[in-house]
Design a protein around this nucleic acid. Structure first.
Lengths: 166, 166
DNA sequence: TATTGTTATACTCTATAACTATA
DNA sequence: TATAGTTATAGAGTATAACAATA
């Protein structure tokens, strides 16, 4: 049975992908060309951080995209599915199940949209608010650890340069 | 029928993911918390560049991972599957089909490993070498365009900081 | 006519178990 | 016993078409 990123309270554990990348105590490989590419380095760095992210969020039984959804709902009460899709780059049919799961868990609730009868406004429940207060603190702490080899100034510079790209 | 990332000569076209992220000419969304996270920004930047990457590589009928494989084989003649897996973070069972496809297209060939009877050394064919000379030039050009809002110094700094993370 | 949210569905990517041949 | 490569397969992620309700 494959490891579920959602299994609650499963302690820190490396992903199979990371394992595949680490076993290689074999011959060194020249990846100098790939390392000259911003895209390659950005992807490697993102995967490295997201791996830790998944480990820590498993304590809350949250996938990365679920954390992002809850964070956006928390900071944008009444946000619609359509806006979540646009912000997260998720297609509408694929968001349906994610929203349903969070609603079943009692973390979000959907209310009729005040001005658009087609849409539903999404809000955090009290339980969702409580969960996210802890989860966002955990994530902020995780960020510090994941970028511990950077100074504060470097970290700010890095974020500024990344945002200039997208 | 879904769009194949491999359909040759398909011209530049936006991905559905990017489309989902752009339609939103609607209400602005506050994503200030997510934007403080290195992981979030690195993922967004990587996706932004990889989208252009996919468009350009479709001219060579190459997926991102296939380009990476060919580049590594080109710079490491005789590299084994195991080494490719470790360097790219791909699990062995998932590499089998990728190697078979590139071999069928006559871009790589596999020769018995000189010192390990279990392994096969992977090499570029003449056709593979020719293709990669063009493809790597295209990628280098693409990188310049994708990071056109960065100065040369910023680009170097960005790569250095990203590599400090992973 | 266009948009929100939805169902159904298909393709791709990623992961695990288990096998073989060789070390 | 361990490792390289492979097969089969399951699960997660991502994509398109088409529909009902509302704008």
């Amino acid at each position: 049975m494959p490891r579920s990123a959602n299994s609650p309270k499963s302690g820190p554990r490396t992903t199979a992908r990371a394992a595949a990348a680490q076993d290689g105590a074999t011959e060194p490989v020249d990846s100098s060309f790939l390392r000259t590419l911003v895209g390659y380095n950005a992807r490697r760095a993102a995967l490295s951080i997201i791996e830790v992210f998944m480990q820590r969020m498993s304590a809350y039984d949250l996938k990365v995209v679920e954390f992002s959804m809850l964070s956006l709902v928390g900071h944008n009460p009444g946000i619609t599915s359509r806006q979540l899709c646009a912000t997260l780059g998720v297609l509408p049919p694929n968001l349906v199940g994610l929203i349903a799961a969070l609603e079943r868990r009692g973390l979000i609730k959907r209310l009729p949209h005040p001005s658009d009868g087609r849409a539903m406004g999404i809000h955090l429940t009290a339980a969702g608010t409580e969960l996210m207060q802890e989860a966002e603190q955990t994530v902020a702490q995780l960020e510090v650890e994941a970028t511990s080899r950077l100074t504060d100034a470097e970290r700010k510079t890095l974020i500024r340069l990344l945002q200039k790209i997208y």
